[in-house]
Design a protein around this nucleic acid. Structure first.
Lengths: 146, 146
DNA sequence: TTAATCCTGAGTAATTTACTCGGCATTTAT
DNA sequence: ATAAATGCCGAGTAAATTACTCAGGATTAA
């Protein structure tokens, strides 16, 4: 149940962009320095974030990256899914993997419910914390009751 | 944010034991067959579960494993922590790792709050689902409000 | 034209995961 | 006493994933 470095760095970098929202494009070199993350690794991360439409890029000198949406419109869940794929504790929950054969057993379905619940919890939590929330340092309290 | 096979198999195996609670020791061969898991791998898993005191073992013919507590006293969190160590999305949250140097940065603390919250959510959820709950197929509804 | 940037695909090193293997120890039934 | 079924243990290995690096091209502003 660990986040990858990609996910962790990605969120940190996005917070960095959020803190500098409306300051024009921020170059990777600056983020790499400020967050003490390898710039080349950040390039990989930003490629994925861009593919998912979470950031805009500007090339050339004075280029860099900016958030594609205001900080309150981007949530942690978006970032992590962009970088790690679907957030799910076990594979057999995501789409049509052919592991369905295992799931014919009675008790599997028992465990399956737990993983579904866990998956939904995590997604719900991370979808309700925006970059803006993080900057302000306070998240909404919420009731999870599903 | 994926569970290891060890964790997944471990929970399935423990459910198996719970379903056969009070039927005497269950040998690994039976579980391996019933759950379609490599018996040798199960040995590793059960060694860890035993080290953590979640199961008892009986050697020799007619030997096997039994739950160390009734199914309502053992929760999914116990099992996963026994098999994967502390449940935490990022390392820097667990004890005195020397990654504290990174955590001097202002925005790191911003992200740290999120990971702490996520960690607590996951642990709370998994600590409130017992083997008995899984067998009965219904979990308590709960309010997460921290 | 230059320098700073983004962009891309491939490659690699390290780590973790998911096991296997060999063999010994214990217990019960015969 | 012996055999057979089990647990127990430490080491080893193969595969997958992660966490990067590397080389070089494309774009843009000064």
């Amino acid at each position: 149940m660990r986040l990858s470095a990609k996910g962790e760095y990605g969120v940190r970098a996005m917070v960095y962009l959020a803190l500098n929202y409306r300051s024009g494009p921020i170059p990777l070199s600056k983020i790499a320095l400020g967050e003490n993350i390898s710039q080349q690794f950040l390039e990989q991360i930003f490629a994925a974030l861009r593919r998912e439409g979470l950031i805009y890029s500007a090339r050339g000198i004075k280029g860099g990256y900016t958030l594609a949406y205001p900080p309150e419109k981007i949530c942690v869940g978006d970032i992590i899914r962009a970088l790690e794929g679907p957030i799910t504790p076990v594979n057999c929950l995501s789409e049509g993997k052919e592991e369905a054969d295992r799931c014919t057993r009675a008790d599997i379905c028992l465990t399956r419910n737990v993983w579904e619940r866990l998956r939904d919890h995590i997604n719900y939590l991370l979808d309700n914390i925006s970059l803006q929330d993080m900057i302000e340092g306070k998240f909404d309290e919420f009731i999870v009751n599903k």
